[in-house]
Amino acid sequence: MPKAAVRKPKKKVCVFCKDKTDYIDYKDTSLLRKFISDRGKIRARRVTGNCSQHQRDVAIAVKNSREMALLPYTSTAR
């Protein structure tokens, strides 16, 4: 077997661009939870597949949400 099979780049489209969202609500924790890890860290763009603008909006929303204790800053591994 020669080289490991080349990973097929699965083209992801930003979910927010697809729905034409222009405001990401920091109160919508069920949505934002999809973009944080179990430890509470914000998922990288290469994981989420968001475009740069929406990734930034998500990050801001998560941070606002954390300030209001809706999302954790850290949570211990489960």
């Binding site: 109160k27 954390r66 204790a69 809706l70 999302l71 800053y73």
Partner: peptide, 16 residues
Amino acid sequence: RLSYEIRKSHEGIYAV
């Protein structure tokens, strides 16, 4: 329920 403790409490009353 708060995600973390604020002022020694794990709860808060939210209003928007």
